Amino acid sequence: MTQRICTICARAGSKGVKNKNIRDLHGKPLIAYTVEQAIKSQLFELIAVSSDSKKILDIAQSYGVNILVDRPSNLATDSSSKLNAIRHCVETVEYLSKQKTDIVVDLDVTSPLRLPEDIKGAVNLLEAKNIGNVITGSPARRSPYFNLVELGHNNVVRLVKSLNKPIIRRQDSPACFDMNASVYVWRRDILFNYPTIFNIDTQIFVMPEERSIDIDTELDFEIVEFLIRRRVGV
């Protein structure tokens, strides 16, 4: 039987939106949405929240998380790698449960608009295609082949990517996607043996734009709150 665990990493510090992981969003803390989605997906034997904040861990437990992981301070700074925090969380879960996991799914707290079906879709993609990992994203609004530009030598504007034959219509550009930081799925060995989220067979599970907003600013929070209210009919 495949052993799947869910990790949810939520540190106390936040620059763009103060205390965003536990900030009230339409009647409950932001982190509660992710915990509830993980539970409703019915995919996981274990769900773990990793944090350097006792308050965050207490809230997570009150919403049904069964493993709480105290994140070391060196993994909770502004410059800390989230991958290392996820690996630490997985190792802690395995130590406490006394069993190795096969598949790790990390859910970002700042993506509360996802649905349990999105989590299932990403996991199903990994398992059906027998690949190493899956990320999620939505169709990009800007194309690096058509209307996404960078500054070159002497600040001359140029397309980020060019083709031998120029693109005349955006619709003719190769498909591009915005990573939405919503769902990450790994086979355990890939998570622990690759230095980035990309490996030789990384694939993407595409989510609609309206479920792909990642809260990083106050404006993001306001937009998400509006969409949550619209979803529940308030």
Rank of each mutant, 00 (worst) to 15 (best):
S143H: 07
S50I: 09
N147T: 01
G13V: 12
D189W: 12
H153E: 10
I168N: 06
P195M: 08
N84C: 06
A122G: 08
K28G: 03
P166T: 10
K161N: 06
P174W: 12
E91V: 03
S138N: 12
R188C: 04
L191A: 03
V156E: 11
V160W: 06
M1H: 12
S81E: 10
K20H: 03
Q61F: 06
P166H: 07
S41E: 04
K40D: 14
I168C: 02
I119M: 10
D106R: 01
I167V: 15
I56W: 02
C6D: 03
L148S: 11
Q3R: 14
S80A: 15
D214H: 13
P174F: 12
K161E: 05
I213C: 02
D216F: 10
L46Y: 14
W186T: 02
D172H: 09
P166R: 09
L159V: 04
N124D: 14
A181V: 01
S53M: 09
V49G: 04
R114I: 15
T2S: 07
G13M: 10
P166V: 08
D52L: 06
Q37M: 11
Y33V: 06
S81F: 09
R211W: 03
Y145S: 06
L125A: 06
V93A: 13
S53C: 13
F177D: 03
E150Q: 07
I86S: 04
T2V: 14
E218F: 05
R141H: 11
I56D: 00
K100V: 06
V49H: 03
I59Q: 01
Q61D: 09
T202M: 10
K15P: 00
L75I: 05
S51L: 05
N19I: 01
G233R: 10
Q42E: 11
A175F: 08
M207P: 00
I47P: 00
V185I: 08
Q61W: 00
D78L: 13
C9R: 05
A48P: 06
D108L: 04
Q203D: 11
T101G: 07
K129N: 13
D52K: 05
V69Q: 04
V93H: 02
A122N: 11
C176L: 05
A85I: 01
C89W: 01
R211H: 14
I59R: 00
S14L: 00
V49C: 11
L148P: 01
